[in-house]
């Protein structure tokens, strides 16, 4: 079999294309990671070389190969304190701005979607308790939703593997968890603090019930959607947010490439997206 080689120019060309399509920009230190997966896909699709594969990738009407490539180029796993910089942004920047602008004392509403097995929602709760002084003044409501009812049950159960909690500081592990079987059980207070719901983001009727949120976390989901679904998700988030509310996407995702409905906000800790106020 012919040996497939990804040249420097191929890498640059692919990197530019992938960034424009997906919003993920691979730096040079990811070269080995990218080359390995590209060569796998080139061989699996029967393409002769990078150029053949790239043309197919770019012009394939269904976009199926692009989706396959996205799947292998992204790491689909979740754990406590994943992408912690966004939680820092929440407690250091976002919530202070929200509370400054709030006209009443209604609870701050945070929505996590997809919930998966609950690590993100519980991480936010722990982060708020540990790092946000505003918890003494404000009520907070966290809703965490997923299309997969099995995931929702797991989230409600709150039992996690050692791998899932590996990035939690030991003090927090001790404070909020207790060893249980071959893993850890999250404490009852936290377990009962979060509303877990089963929902399909693409169902406009279901989505009507999801309104008046101040912050939405939707990380590493939209990269798996096609263009129209991403656009529909952006519409859903827009309607679900209060004016001036925020959307936090995964590090590799960009709302600017999906919709012009949101403003880009650059905080010291992260780039997030904001629904404009009353007048767009």
């Amino acid at each position: 079999m012919k040996k497939i080689i990804i040249s420097e120019d191929d890498f640059q060309k692919f990197r530019e294309f992938f960034y424009r399509k997906v919003g993920i920009s691979f730096e040079n230190d990811k070269r080995y990671f990218v080359d390995k997966r590209l060569i796998e896909r080139i061989e699996l699709t029967g393409a002769n070389d990078f150029r053949d594969y790239f043309i197919m990738l770019r012009f394939e009407a269904s976009g199926q190969e692009l989706q396959q490539l996205i799947n292998v180029m992204t790491i689909n796993e979740t754990y406590f304190f994943r992408e912690e910089y966004q939680f820092k942004c929440l407690v250091n920047s976002i919530l202070d701005e929200i509370t400054r602008n709030k006209k009443d004392t209604s609870p701050i509403r945070i929505w996590c979607v997809p919930s998966s097995s609950g690590e993100e929602a519980y991480s936010i709760a722990i982060y708020l308790l540990e790092h946000w002084p505003g918890m003494t003044k404000w009520d907070v409501e966290i809703i965490s939703s997923d299309i997969d009812s099995v995931m929702i049950e797991r989230a409600q159960r709150g039992h996690y593997s050692s791998r899932s909690v590996q990035y939690l500081p030991a003090t927090l592990l001790t404070k909020y968890f207790k060893p249980s079987g071959d893993g850890y059980q999250i404490c009852e207070d936290l377990r009962s603090s979060i509303e877990f719901t089963c929902v399909n983001l693409m169902d406009s009727v279901e989505m009507r019930a999801y309104r008046k949120f101040d912050v939405i976390f939707c990380r590493n989901l939209l990269i798996y959607f096609d263009d129209l679904s991403r656009r529909l998700a952006a519409e859903t988030f827009f309607d679900a947010l209060n004016p001036n509310g925020f959307v936090c996407l995964g590090y590799s995702e960009s709302m600017s490439r999906i919709s012009s409905l949101f403003r880009v906000r650059k905080f010291p800790e992260a780039i997030v997206y904001q629904k404009p106020g009353v007048d767009l």
Binding site: T136, D139, V140, E141, I142, I143, D189, I194, A209
Partner: peptide, 16 residues
């Protein structure tokens, strides 16, 4: 803990 839970998410009146 100052977290609160509501059984039903909010729905705007016009959407009912």
């Amino acid at each position: 803990m100052p977290f609160i839970k509501k059984n039903n998410p909010t729905m705007d009146s016009y959407e009912h």
